[in-house]
């Protein structure tokens, strides 16, 4: 095992493009090489050590043996763990926008909140968030036809709007409430929302959305039978008929 701890030297006013903070990038490098990696802040190119302290185990290691611990406030550090394939990134606080985007394997765990676009276009691996997640959790970025395609995201708190937009696979579990339009244009992923939400599954063609709290359902969904899931009754709907969809939406009975 190789553990590397990264700490911001001060609060960032201008956000940092932190895609190099990833086990894949750090694994083959020594600590001093990591410190001299270049990193963009706004339109300025800087060295990692200009902005962060990097401590921990030296020397190269296999990607799967690398754990990166993030101490302090990373809410303005974007794209942490972008495209990571293995290993762990453990944030003791929150993380900035686009964390875990395009992730293919490994674990990203966040103790506080994650900003918008967490795990967008993710393909594999796991992301856990103790606090809340922002908008577009697991979604596809602007113009993209496919959001998350595989892997797992679990959020302990609430999620923002457009959760899992253009989802093509994988599963997202939010224990709290979700904002408007979760699972919009879902093409085959699975979403579970523990709390309430508004207009789930607009333009969904395939996949499953389960809402345990209240949900306003679109008129383009067909009401089906009542089903029992883990001992609770859920109203099943099929849609979105606007897209000739066969997606399944379950909303707990009695919660509306």
């Amino acid at each position: 095992m190789r553990t590397i701890t990264i700490t911001p030297l001060k609060a960032f006013e201008i956000s940092v493009e932190a895609e190099i903070i990833s086990p894949d990038k750090f694994a083959p490098l020594s600590l001093s090489q990591i410190r001299s990696l270049s990193i963009w802040q706004g339109n300025r190119k800087r060295k990692l050590s200009d902005l962060f302290r990097a401590e921990g185990d030296d020397g190269p290691a296999k990607v799967e043996d690398v754990t990166i611990t993030l101490q302090g406030d990373f809410s303005r550090a974007k794209r942490i763990a972008e495209g990571m394939t293995a290993g762990k990134v453990e944030a003791e606080g929150g993380v900035g926008m686009h964390a875990g985007n395009n992730m293919k394997g490994g674990l990203l765990s966040v103790q506080k909140d994650a900003e918008d676009w967490l795990g967008r276009e993710m393909r594999g691996g796991k992301i856990t968030v103790r606090g809340n997640a922002g908008n577009y959790l697991g979604a596809g970025y602007r113009g993209e036809k496919c959001g998350m395609r595989g892997g797992e995201i679990e959020v302990g708190g609430n999620a923002g709007a457009y959760l899992g937009e253009h989802l093509c696979g994988g599963s997202i579990r939010v224990h709290g409430d979700a904002g408007d339009f979760p699972g919009a244009a879902n093409q085959g992923g699975t979403i579970f929302i523990g709390g309430s939400t508004y207009l789930p599954g607009a333009e969904m063609t395939k996949g499953t959305i389960t809402v345990r709290g209240r949900a306003r359902v679109l008129p383009s969904y067909q009401k089906m039978e009542i089903m029992s899931i883990e001992g609770e009754d859920f109203q099943k709907y099929v849609g979105d008929l606007v897209e000739k969809g066969t997606g399944e939406l379950f909303v707990r009975v009695g919660s509306s």
């Binding site: 596809g140 602007r142 113009g143 993209e144 036809k145």
Partner: peptide
């Protein structure tokens, strides 16, 4: 304009 995905 239609393809910000392509711009990336």
């Amino acid at each position: 304009i239609m393809r910000p995905d392509d711009a990336r």
